[in-house]
Amino acid sequence: MTALTFTLKLPLRQRLDVSPLVPDVLLGKSEKEIALLPLQYGNRRIATAELFDIQGGDAESVCISGSPKLDFAGRAMTRGALNIEGDTGAYLGMQMKGGRLCVSGSAGLYAACELKGGLVEIAGNAGDLLGAALPGNKKGMSEGVVIVRGNAGDRVGDHMRRGSILIEGRAGAYLGARMTAGTIAVRGDIGPCAGYAMKRGTLLLYSSHSEIGATFNDCGMHTLGFLPLLLKGYEGLDTCFSGAPASLARVRRFAGDLSVQGKGEILLVA
């Protein structure tokens, strides 16, 4: 059975909430029920079939044609696979608990915010506040893995509690700000104020141009036993962080953010 595919009939004029188009909601529904499923489009609620051509029947594997105006894709999904062909808007994978969410383009603001499990893969770039807590909330991403093959915006992992964010490109300012725990790895350059007000957790940085804030103290060069284990844990994932040479790397450890008595760390790969 082929994936249940939703193809946009026309370019979107308003923002569209596609959170109902996840395996959890679609499984067990008939073609007609899916076609009539209401979606929030701007300030109106309209049937799915008015916006999308619907093909295929395997609701465990859902495919949606992308648009920067598609918001809340994969929200709270717990199982199955959701593929976005192209770009997506804000709140991608918000509060997602399980399954696999792949975007072949870029994602907007708050991707993987308050993620609770599963795997989010973004082939392009991610906007600001990737894996962060929603405004006013204190708990960001608390489990799961996020892979960004391009660049990520500012405040990646704001208030993050657990899980891993792997950025193969660059990351913006305030990387891991107010982080409580978890791991963020970045291959490329980062913006200023990394680890701002960070309590615990690990920022694993590969760029020698990474700027370390004054409130992080140098703890020297080390070979840390947990790093090979951590990188081995990414082996099943299609990411440059799972490579064997990286697993042998020595790192310079910076402890902080000492301005908030933080016990987090920035590990700079030598």
């Binding site: 657990r162 899980g163 725990a181 615990r200 690990t202 947990f226 951590l230 016990k263």
Partner: peptide
């Protein structure tokens, strides 16, 4: 003594 670090891997 409080400097221990937890990591959840796999």
């Amino acid at each position: 003594d409080g400097f221990q670090i937890s990591k959840r891997i796999g």
